[in-house]
């Protein structure tokens, strides 16, 4: 575990994974999309709308998997001060929010023809809506501090608090849903489960694979990006420091250090 704490080593592994993840994702999309959209037969109940499932289920899967990865990363960051775990969580969060949003929208587009309405307060839909808010909260909190390091820790704590709450929220919403809507027509509401058929499973698994490898490939890109951002910050700081060493007056010109001013006037 601690082997990966070293950014160089971590990135060596990540960069080695990258071409494989990117390649597999592209290949799986190239095979999966035509099957999902063209060759797979329409479902006997859901007709052609079953094709929505081939983007909906992978999005929902990524929405949950990414939160799991973020929770693991946040825990590793808070317990072992593992910097790369934090970067992985931070780099994943926007993707998690996008895929939760996609799962919600594609779910609504499937619900309108199947349920006759864009939105029902179905347990699963409602839980995903709340998951979406949790992602937004994480992003907003990580972004709200002047000092980015503080934002990291606060967001990591929030992520863990959220992960403790997700099962409670899900259980509450499911219970609330049965309380209020005992007779909702669940026409294939379980999407995959109710119609386990080879013709559906093949495109579904291909797309699941394509989405998952896509996530890992883009995660590596985003990790490189996050590391560079940290390096740029450090370079800026050391630049200021060297300038100050050569020419003390330069420091004042580069940026006003509020802690320094009163001391200077006292002298």
């Amino acid at each position: 575990m601690h082997r990966f704490a070293n950014p160089t080593q971590f990135m060596r592994i990540a960069n080695a994974i990258y071409p494989w993840a990117a390649g597999l994702s592209v290949i799986l999309f190239l095979i999966g999309l035509p099957i999902a959209l063209i060759t797979s037969p329409p479902d006997y109940q859901q007709s052609e709308t079953v094709r929505i499932m081939y983007v909906h289920v992978p999005s929902a899967w990524l929405a949950l998997m990414i939160y799991g990865i973020m929770a693991g990363g946040s825990a590793a960051f808070l317990i072992w001060r593992h910097p790369m775990a934090n970067l992985a969580a931070k780099a994943s969060a926007p993707m998690g929010a996008v895929f939760t949003g996609l799962a919600l929208i594609t779910g609504m587009l499937w619900g309108q023809p199947m349920w006759g309405t864009f939105w029902v307060w179905d347990g699963r839909l409602t839980s995903f809506l709340i998951l979406f808010f949790l992602y937004l909260g994480y992003l907003a909190l990580g972004d709200a501090f002047e000092d980015s390091e503080r934002g990291d820790k606060a967001a990591a704590i929030l992520c863990l608090v959220g992960s403790v709450n997700i099962p409670i929220i899900h259980f509450s919403v499911e219970w609330w849903n049965t309380l209020h809507q005992p007779s909702i027509v669940k026409l294939g509401g379980d999407g995959v489960k109710s119609t386990v058929d080879g013709s559906i499973l093949l495109p579904l698994f291909l797309m699941l694979g394509a989405f998952t490898f896509y996530y890992f490939a883009v995660l590596v890109l985003r990790l490189r990006s996050e590391l560079l951002a940290a390096k740029i910050r450090n370079a800026r700081m050391s630049q200021v420091a060297t300038h100050a060493a050569i020419d003390p007056a330069a420091e004042g010109r580069l940026f006003v250090d509020s802690a320094r001013l009163p001391r200077a006037s006292a002298e």
Partner: peptide
């Protein structure tokens, strides 16, 4: 799409925008 074009294609369209968009922004 058997009369369901208005739901199937927007789903794929939005998914494409999401997937490609995140990739482009990240790059």
């Amino acid at each position: 799409m058997g009369g369901y074009a208005a739901w199937v294609w927007p789903s794929y369209g939005l998914a494409t925008i999401g997937v490609v968009g995140v990739l482009l922004v990240s790059r």
